[in-house]
């Protein structure tokens, strides 16, 4: 029972990270209808920036907002400088550009901070609560991801900019006709996705350790979450992310054949199964539309 509770909590905690990555992926997917394969690398780079600031002695409470701001600006810049000039080039050209971006960011991080594995301190300190049932870092992860997700929900649901972003993603032509600057909404989406990724990276780094390749498998779990929830539904993506976290941990613990080494293939299995049997995801609704 205790083991189950512990695994559930671990699942929810890492699930929150996957949820953030899934949400970042879905936000960009909705805006430009392409999957950002470099999303993980962007998050990794943000995490290194945070690490660097910590190494310089900047206090943690300042590092997180600063990293988020820098990442936001970076996301906007990437959209403006790299993605926008592509216009409506074919899907595969986009994929190649994302691959190029992946290579650039990965190589740059390795060049600046080298490829050795670095410990990353938790902002919530060591130690645990409830007799070791849940570590402080896990509590922090759950609290922060929940806060971020709720704030995003409120932003999209109740602010005008949030509404404008939703309108721009759904129907760019109509959005222009009501005076929404669609290009900037897309850039904003990129900035926000980068910022969310930065939070995810900082929260997962104390667990997986910091190195340039740390986000590849996390991104895959994020994709699995996005697919599970439906690429067209941000809320679904968030649920999907949590579910992937829980499934991953429970399966790894209770199905001996799976153990540690099959955890990653689970993501593949989930992605393919969900796509095959329910291409719109569990939460993605096909919008009822009259023509």
């Amino acid at each position: 029972m205790e083991l189950l509770a512990q695994q559930l909590i671990t699942g929810i905690a890492t699930g929150g990270i996957y949820a953030c990555m899934a949400l970042a992926v879905v936000m960009i997917y909705q805006a430009i209808h392409h999957l950002n394969f470099a999303q993980g690398e962007m998050a990794m780079f943000s995490t290194f920036i945070a690490w660097q600031m910590l190494a310089w002695g900047v206090p943690y409470w300042l590092v997180i907002p600063l990293t988020v701001v820098v990442s936001f600006a970076g996301g906007v810049a990437i959209e403006r400088l790299v993605i926008r000039p592509l216009g409506d080039a074919p899907v595969l050209s986009h994929i190649v550009v994302f691959i190029g971006l992946f290579a650039i960011i990965n190589s740059l991080a390795g060049f600046i901070w080298d490829f050795t594995i670095k410990p990353f301190p938790s902002p919530f300190g060591e130690g645990s609560q409830f007799g070791g049932l849940i570590s402080n870092h896990q509590i922090g992860m759950i609290a922060v991801t929940m806060t971020v997700l709720v704030m995003l929900f409120l932003f999209f649901q109740y602010t005008r900019v949030g509404l404008a972003m939703r309108a721009a993603a759904e129907n760019p032509a109509s959005a222009r006709l009501v005076g929404i600057r669609v290009g900037w909404m897309i850039a904003l989406g990129w900035g926000m996705a980068a910022a969310i990724g930065a939070v995810a990276g900082i929260l997962i780094a104390p667990i997986v350790f910091l190195e340039p390749n740390m986000m590849l498998s996390i991104l895959l779990y994020g994709f699995a979450g996005a697919v599970l929830g439906g690429l067209t539904s941000p809320t679904g993506a968030v649920f999907g992310g949590f579910m992937v976290g829980i499934i991953e941990n429970l399966a790894g613990t209770y199905i001996p054949e799976i153990g540690g080494e099959l955890k990653l293939p689970i993501a593949l299995f989930l992605i393919v199964t969900v796509l095959v049997f329910k291409p719109t995801g569990l939460f993605g609704r096909t919008v009822v539309q009259r023509v």
Binding site: I99, G100, L101, F102, I104, S107, L108
Partner: peptide, 8 residues
């Protein structure tokens, strides 16, 4: 990074 840049 150079390889990525060439690709893009």
């Amino acid at each position: 990074a150079v390889y990525g840049l060439i690709m893009i």
